[in-house]
Design a protein around this nucleic acid. Sequence first.
DNA 1: CGCGACGTTGATTTGCCTCAACGATTGTGG
DNA 2: CCACAATCGTTGAGGCAAATCAACGTCGCG
Lengths: 202, 202
Amino acid sequence: MFPETMTNALAYGSLLQHINRYSKISYEDFEVCKQYFNVEHYKSHSLVVKAGSVVTKQYYVVQGCLRTFLPDDEKDREYTVQFAVEEWWASDFISYYSGVPAVCQVESLEESILLSVQKADLVRLYQQVPQLESFFLRKLENAFVAFQKRILSNLKDTAEDRYEDFLRHYPNLDQRVKNYQIASYLGITPESLSRIRKQKMK
Amino acid sequence: MFPETMTNALAYGSLLQHINRYSKISYEDFEVCKQYFNVEHYKSHSLVVKAGSVVTKQYYVVQGCLRTFLPDDEKDREYTVQFAVEEWWASDFISYYSGVPAVCQVESLEESILLSVQKADLVRLYQQVPQLESFFLRKLENAFVAFQKRILSNLKDTAEDRYEDFLRHYPNLDQRVKNYQIASYLGITPESLSRIRKQKMK
DNA sequence: CGCGACGTTGATTTGCCTCAACGATTGTGG
DNA sequence: CCACAATCGTTGAGGCAAATCAACGTCGCG
């Protein structure tokens, strides 16, 4: 493993590159930005966000893989809202934006390195580096569009179509996560997904 | 009917009240705001947004009812993304935010009075009245949360549950729109919805 | 090694769709 | 204002995709 300072440098480097893809930011501005982001490490199978309390942070994935899901203890089932791999963001955004206690959880599916930022700190950061407000706004717009597309896909596509959408939307992710987790993202059972995969081998 | 100036005054009054519910705005600021919003009238069954060109406006519903839907000419079917009644906003937000030509359409289901605003004008407006940027951001966050809840509802709830969600989400709207439009919002056929309604009468 | 978690396969059930027919309602032109 | 057509909602019969239930093989890990 890299020494602490080394992986931190890599983490912030990843974030800088990511932000720069959307809105150019100066070295000085990024130095300010860095102060508000904390590096967090999570083991595989650990919980990043637990249901029950209000979520005040969002997370940027430097390395690893997260899954946001709604547990349904009664039916002994889970519903996956989204996955997040390198350069994606995750949180329980329902709790984060509406300020209600989280019903969803975020779990780390692998050893993960994250950068977390407090919602309250973002407000301050926006005042110091206004481009970042545009950046996060753009990010929200994109996420909104993605969700609307997913709703449309649920309305019009078959399970097989949606599985192919999933493969396109998350390249190679099918090799990193469990089948039953993909099934719970698609809204079908693991058995059905297994049959769809079999079907597709021809 | 009211004279033109009268309905315009009512329209802007509605918008002012609506904005004030989220972020307080002074009389002077609202005067600036008004300049960018245009009153538009639509007849029942007319199209507010047609598929094919990039959508640059979003619409506030002063009076009436809109529906955003994706037409599928092949299957001779439609998929409803959302309804918008008084004090709601509508557009094809996929086109509006991503700048791609619209695939969805927005139709007026009743005689409607709308206030439209250009995306480009909002940028200018934000510079003059910064509270409005927060207002629109809040609106986007709420819409994002609503969509995420709908995705979860699609994953976990039965058609009947989703119908009840619809009734709660859009109070009394079932008396204003066609059954097959509600069905296309729920992702079921009009026949299935009819059977669900029958079921619920006990 | 042995246990538990996971993926697959088969048999059966079920919720919703499709297709078709029929009233009710709406809207329109004579 | 009525007559007629079109649209819409309902109901029934039959079919299909996916769920459920159950069994079994495999893999990973304590």
